[in-house]
Amino acid sequence: MEAKLNADKTDWSPFPYLDDQDVISVQRGPEPGGLPGAYRAFGETLRGLKTTFGRIIEGPVTIQYPEEKTPVYPRFRGRHKLHRFEDTGLEKCVGCSLCAAACPADCIRVVAEENDPENRVSAGERFAEVYEINLSRCIFCGYCEVACPFDAITMGHDYEMSDYNRSDLIFTKEMLLAEPIDRTPLRSEGE
């Protein structure tokens, strides 16, 4: 394939791709004023009134927030959750700190500790002695979820996390392991 050089070009018009048939004339509305204008204005006013009246018949579409909550999609990234194995009740987190390493906002703090074989906390060799997420820094990117080799941390559906103190936004392991008090509604199929 040979590149076409400018030297070979013969048509130097500013719109080389526009044929005459491609030129579209601008569609203008009717001129304002006069008797036709008044007639149109009257008609359009009635059309507007009809439009707003239609809203009364259709009824409100707003969601009464504190009582009703907006349903979220299944993949919505809300507040983190830590998980346990369902059968043994042991924590899935083994304190590897990969989530902390993946975190772009640097909001996860993990301190690992050796498991006592008599009284295991996690299934692995070590467990997370301290697991804190500073939710005031978290950007809810979900990288921690991706980084976790044991699916121990996932992003939940909770989005009501406002609080009065910054220190209250540092979520400890116990808080992250616990189920949220109010379940956030999930969007049903096709909603």
Partner: peptide
């Protein structure tokens, strides 16, 4: 309330 309904919301409630 009516203006709320006209705008597809509830108005004061």
């Amino acid at each position: 309330k009516l203006i709320g309904r006209f705008q597809a919301r509830y108005g004061p409630n």
